[in-house]
Design a protein around this nucleic acid. Sequence first.
DNA 1: GGCTGTGAACTTATTCACAGCT
DNA 2: AGCTGTGAATAAGTTCACAGCC
Lengths: 213, 213
Amino acid sequence: MAKIPDATITRLVRYLRALERMEEAGAVRTSSEELARATGVTAFQVRKDLAYFGSYGTRGVGYTVPVLRRELRQILGLGRKWRLIIVGMGRLGQALADYPGLAEGYELVAGFDVDPGIIGRRVGPVTVRPLEELEATVRDEHVDVALLAVPEGQAQAVAERLVRAGVRGLLNFAPVVLSLPEEVAVENVDFMAGLSRLGFFMLNPRWREEMMG
Amino acid sequence: MAKIPDATITRLVRYLRALERMEEAGAVRTSSEELARATGVTAFQVRKDLAYFGSYGTRGVGYTVPVLRRELRQILGLGRKWRLIIVGMGRLGQALADYPGLAEGYELVAGFDVDPGIIGRRVGPVTVRPLEELEATVRDEHVDVALLAVPEGQAQAVAERLVRAGVRGLLNFAPVVLSLPEEVAVENVDFMAGLSRLGFFMLNPRWREEMMG
DNA sequence: GGCTGTGAACTTATTCACAGCT
DNA sequence: AGCTGTGAATAAGTTCACAGCC
């Protein structure tokens, strides 16, 4: 099994989303061409990305929507329901808890905060627990992943607690680079970085053309 | 001026954040080595990234924190205050409106929603306006950028309205690939994509090693 | 001596052309 | 004939070694 570009995984997520829309619309058959149009990449890229993992289509025909969808869910680890907690139940944490897409692929186990005004409140499918219960919950409820929605200053410390408690994956919303052991998977969702990139591209349309085609 | 890797811009944002922390801590002088440690990249990379834009350091000495900070702010378009609106003032939109980091570099002009239960409510520095006022506001208040925090199904339509009204940059929080004219800068903040990547890495630690070192 | 700035080597990722099935 | 799967070519991005300057 070859080395897979990081960007390929990101695109896989998009293909899956496109396939889900197609299946909802009742489509059974699709092609690299159609997937490419739906996701804004080239057909070459679609085929190459899929080929890293196997052969899911039929030459001369195309792909079967539900089959490819199932395979992609498998590859992306959505075959099983990951058990998930949210740490930091401010407005962002609450927005995340409510997010409908979470339900497929993830099971929200609990939310945590330090603010007594929020603890005990019911948000989406969970009741907010005090941060002290973090370790016990991770252990007893077999938590796999944590969404980290705490203020910047606390992110590193809380992340370390989570890892020590046994969490294997971390989605970090704070604008800091967490330093954690290699074996923990970390993804960052940093919207301020996105905003700053916007500023750059708006200021430098010329570079934008060169860079993004 | 050479072609600048997309990833370089993202790293520039991190360097800037590190510099701001250093300046707060009273540091005056730094080095590529220190910036590298603070942001989790190599010192080579730091120097290369900066070199795309100019020479901001002194050989044998290093960089002057406030100087480099100012230059980076300039490059990233934070030299001026972009005028910004938030479309979709649900929990996510509200969380964004409250975000303290927005204040530096951006001026939040207004928030919009269709829900009569939210319209008129004061959130952070703005009062929520009805979506009908979108075009007039963009025009009259000279809005540069919009944060798009509406449900997936409405993202494309609202984005088109925004572009037609004259918005030049768009930060999209919906998990869809927007198709818009080339000249509009678009950045996506898709946390579900991040979650799916986590799933993949947790499922395939072997690949993760190969991929991320 | 020390640290930046940069051309050259290398590594990774994307594009392409076409062979291989159906 | 048509569309996938893939090795080879090209392009992009990162690492490195060292020249240049303080």
